[in-house]
Nucleic acid binder design. Structure first.
Lengths: 127, 127
DNA sequence: TGGGGTACTTACCAAAAGGTGAGTGAGGAG
DNA sequence: CTCCTCACTCACCTTTTGGTAAGTACCCCA
């Protein structure tokens, strides 16, 4: 009961998936954890320029609740906490692959169009 | 200039893509338009139970700006406006496919776990 | 003794997102 | 004559989201 979805009900799978990745930094957290495998709190913070500590912990807790990340606490001093992706989290990242590619494509296209516009503005139309 | 991205800059493609689909109803709008091909405003409203007219127009305008949907206005009375996906929008939907599948999987798993929990609660442990 | 690092939590605030209810203006149904 | 439909727009409000700054408790380094 404590682990059920935070919102819903969902109409389709997209709904359910978007709910889990929506959050200013979640995409980047996923990407960072997938890239490095294991990361400590401060490493993540440094890897996400501009994130506040509050949001980082909040997002990590939610993703833990959602079964995406694993949190390992070592009872040392100074404290050490390591975050990594669960199997479920890794499968989410795989499912996000095509979307990421689409986004990259879009970014490239945007820049291309801007360049074209600049050229069109600079060059007088051939008469 | 008027058509550049609404936010950014983006760190990776996921970022850019999520920006375009984040919005309470955008996933459903995409799904509805992909399903039916062409939909009128009122049809979309009826297809998205609970959406407010304000949010529906707002989301449609943003998606139009982002080059995902095409808006065709017929100068008739009563007014008629038809929405459909652009090529870009259809490619986004394709890229969302795996994510949607992941989400469905997650929903099914969730229900399965609930059922397992219920069973575990109902059945006394074999001693 | 003072500063930095570890991984947080808490209170307070600002901005963004989203909902509500009204109004538009013409046509068609009752 | 009144209400409903179409596709919106607008003003106002609430909810959600995210940021800021401080505090915690202990350690290491100079």
């Amino acid at each position: 009961m404590t682990k059920s979805a935070r919102s819903g009900p969902y109409i389709c799978g997209i709904d359910a998936a978007l709910d889990v990745v929506s959050g200013k930094w979640k995409g980047l957290i996923l990407w960072e954890l997938d890239n490095y495998g294991v990361r400590r709190f401060a490493e993540l913070r440094r890897g996400l320029p501009g994130v506040s500590e509050k949001m980082l912990t909040q997002h990590l807790r939610e993703m833990e609740q959602d079964g995406l990340v694993h949190r390992e606490v070592y009872a040392e001093v100074p404290p050490r906490v390591e975050y990594s992706l669960t199997e479920h989290g890794r499968s989410l990242n795989a499912a996000l692959g095509p979307l990421g590619a689409w986004g990259m494509d879009r970014l490239v296209r945007e820049r291309t169009e801007l360049v074209e516009h600049r050229d069109a503005d600079l060059l007088p139309r051939p008469s």
